[in-house]
Amino acid sequence: MSAENQTPPVLEARALGKTLGGNRVLDAVSLSLPKGCVKVLIGPSGAGKSTLLQCLNFLIPPDSGTILLEGREVNGKSRRELCTLRQNVGMIFQDFNLFDHLSALENVRVALMKVKGMSKLDAGELALAELARVGLQDKAALYPASLSGGQKQRVAIARALAMDPKVMLLDEPTSALDPELIGEVLAVIRDLAQNGMTMIVATHQISFSASLADEFLFMEKGRVIESGSPAELLRRDSGSRTLAFCAKISELSGEGGEAEVLAPECRV
């Protein structure tokens, strides 16, 4: 056994199950995120992607299955363990969820003070540095209502990064954005990936994610029905469900012939 195999994945889910309103929304989903890997979750609407991501940090408590943070099982009933897990797992939402009554700086600062117990001064300094990292240091004093969608999502990313998470969960981070604002957010995400952040991203941005992802996970009806490297799944003769799905959404979004240009270099 090499030393590498002994390091447990940063985050692991085993056989997660969730029933909502009589629907089997997650059906024994397992998933492992080794350090530095980027996984992409795709699948039709209602497949359970958001539910899966929110189960990973117990925003939605799973009915069954286990979550392991760096190899240690998390007890979802313990308030302390939950807070530790959530500090280590950053989350980005489709609709940003910035705190509307706080400025960009205060949005980033609040958890540093409340959760990490930092002083206002230290937290403010760190918050400013995180805003600078996403290119928004000059917007620090603005309230969410006066930021564009792309800026809001970058503030949300800075807010999550400030907690120094070990892994990031991104739930359709660009789906609520106007097309011309998607690029600035994708650039930040690409930057994160290239700096070795462990991530799982639910997205419909196929070509972008194919260029970053180590693995694609295709979900349908609460289960991961296909997984593999994007190169493998998106090869024109792969006959995969993933390829069929991606071809369909590229068609819909007008990214004509995207499947053909996909020959991504995969960082493994």
Binding site: Q54, N57, L59, R79, C83, T84, R86, Q87, V89, G90, M91, F93, D95, F96, N97, L98, F99, D100, H101, V110, A111, K114, V115, A156, R159, A160, M163
Partner: peptide
């Protein structure tokens, strides 16, 4: 609902989230 979710996701306890995020709004 996303306000409380985002606060929890950052590691705030529910009483903290209610005090610093929910009630001020």
């Amino acid at each position: 609902a996303g306000q409380l979710k985002a606060a929890r996701a950052l590691g705030l306890t529910d009483p903290q989230a209610i005090r610093s995020i929910i009630l001020p709004q």
